[in-house]
Write a protein that binds this DNA or RNA. Structure first.
Lengths: 344, 344
DNA sequence: ATATTTCTTTTAAACGTTTTCGAAACAAAT
DNA sequence: ATTTGTTTCGAAAACGTTTAAAAGAAATAT
């Protein structure tokens, strides 16, 4: 059972017309008669014809394939909840528009390791989406500066379309809500400082507290990697052992917050009666496990969809597409992990 | 800045040798002199040459691309924790061996919708991995019966390589452990019956209880969709309201178990002192949130890795590869959500 | 010197498409 | 009868690569 693939040539023979005519008939060109089109299509169906992406790509310089580059600090790959949701949404939109998705990263140790750009050129990606990556990587830089259509997520580059989640507003909303619940001693177990996301969240944290007239206390600020429950656990334990412990602890993300919750409970304290907790991202479980997490729910659906949509615009119209930064807001999920401690 | 891609022809001109020589030099054929090889490679580098996957695929009938088909009942796509872990591992292994990964499913509403097989032929996938899919789908059947190398995950097909997680042993281990902790009134909120996974888990559940001499009580058996916290919540509430409620409730997966935990807590009951709980899969949070979940930790890493490895074997040696079913065991994570209620 | 072998390179066809340009056929207009 | 226009089709080149077979060059054997 040799893999015999039927080609335009086969249809052309079966139909008694030229290959060119078959091609044009199948692509619905205007210079082919209705009758011929129908006959060609019928026979193509009967023969079980499928177009050949490689040949099309070779000829047209269009692969209908989008490259996805995602590397996070922990190399969690597809198992990163925020990214997998964004990607899923991106994928759905891209597929609706007839594009496939292929990953750019990966270690390729057996073959000669390719740079991201090499890989993208090799595969002939029509465009590329870059997310959550360490943007200081020279390979990423090379890719971004290439002439391949690029959309970045959560990082802004000069002259490139970027989709960023609104960390400024997110943190502001969250801090404000916590403040309104009466908290003044607010700790923040934030992510490592080397990312743009952390930077803008920290800035917003400081600014918001300043606007609210709440002094920031250094001992309440702790750096801990994203999505790391153990480190968050340790940080939380230390915070609780301070002479003047916080009444509310914010975390870099819901994952970390769960680690914090464990630490709090291990000390025999209750949430939110004794200590309040807030996460970030709004992952599924955070909104299903009690106490429901007070968090900012990222609109991953929108981020992915808009990223795909803009990238495809850019692919189809490289000159005419507006280069812009699109900010996607999250929404405050009040949950029940932050207590109202206002005096009655 | 027109996208000018350098080709073998350019190198050939720059080197003063034929295109064939360039091709063979870059591919390290034995009939090219060392000197020429070096010169060609040097100039290729200098010119910034990248091979063209489309042209290679067209000529060699090898795309170095693997198709991934995954559709679950809830269409959770990449956000399905079990699958995303398996896929991540699959991806890593495949990439190490020089393959890329592209998704097969997706709605493609704008283009004329392709069947899975059409899509696979169109893209020229060297092989295909199928997971978690509703295997009764005729499109899946068509793909599986095609002559494309296929590996299936969690479902066995005649004459096809399958990687399956050991649900029989998993459930047996879990039930036995629960039994050993003294439980006799064991309820099972299992997944919907229309999947092979549910079937084998249920069979194992019944068999194990029978072997242990514990009668199965119909009112303890509830069907509820996988990964559905709400439905698990409802089912749990009903179970707890039975005249003779179970002392331990097993769930289809950790996700569902969290829904159950909420229901139990809402009734003012403690875990595991009042009611014991067991999940399945061993997702990250289940092993981080207290009470640590008693569960079967799936070896997603191994499943993905072996699937990729076998598929690539099959691609490289279609005749000589053993068609087999590979069973991957999970491990019992005792956690702390099942209480020991043996009399002292 | 010629024949044989070995090593290196080139020629040319092929993979399955798309697309430009020209041709054929026919009708309508001059 | 010639021109013009319209509609439909085909020839052929091109995309970038691989590879079988032929050819050339150099070395060795007869």
């Amino acid at each position: 059972m040799a893999r015999r693939i039927v080609s335009l040539k086969d249809i052309s023979k079966a139909c008694g017309v030229s290959i060119a005519t078959v091609s044009k008939a199948l692509n619905d060109h205007s210079d082919i008669s209705k009758e011929t089109k129908e006959r060609v299509r019928e026979i193509a169906d009967k023969l079980g014809y499928h177009p050949n992406a490689a040949a099309q790509a070779l000829k047209t310089n269009r692969s209908n394939n989008i490259g996805v580059l995602f590397v996070d600090e922990a190399n969690s790959g597809l198992t990163h909840d925020y990214f997998s949701h964004v990607l899923d949404s991106f994928k759905k939109k891209a597929e609706q528009e007839g594009f496939d998705i292929t990953f750019i990263n990966g270690d390729r140790s057996k073959t000669n390791k390719m740079s991201y750009l090499s890989h993208a050129i090799y595969r002939g990606f029509d465009g590329v989406v870059i997310a959550c990556v360490e943007f200081s990587d020279p390979e990423v830089d090379e890719l971004i500066k290439s002439n391949i259509p690029v959309v970045t997520i959560d990082h802004t580059f000069y002259n490139r379309i970027a989709i960023v989640s609104d960390n400024i507003k997110g943190i502001r909303d969250l801090v404000t809500y916590i403040y309104e619940q009466g908290h003044r001693k607010i700790a923040y177990v934030h992510g490592l400082e080397n990312t743009a996301v952390t930077q803008s969240r920290l800035t917003s944290f400081y600014n918001t507290l300043q606007d609210l007239g709440v002094p920031v206390r250094d001992e309440y600020m702790v750096s801990s990697p994203y999505r790391n429950t153990e480190k968050a656990f340790e940080a939380t334990t230390k915070l609780l052992e301070l002479p003047d412990p916080p009444t509310c602890i914010m975390y870099s993300d819901d994952f970390a917050a769960f680690g914090g919750i464990n630490a709090i409970r291990q000390k025999g304290l209750r949430i939110p009666e004794d200590v309040s907790v807030a996460g970030y991202d709004g992952i599924e479980l955070a909104r299903r496990i009690s106490p429901l997490m007070t968090t900012i729910v990222q609109d991953t659906d929108r981020i992915g969809r808009v990223a795909a949509s803009k990238l495809i615009d850019l692919i189809n119209n490289p000159k005419g597409t507006l280069i812009e930064q699109i900010v996607v807001e999250g929404t405050l999920e009040k949950g029940e992990s932050v207590a109202n401690i206002n005096p009655v």
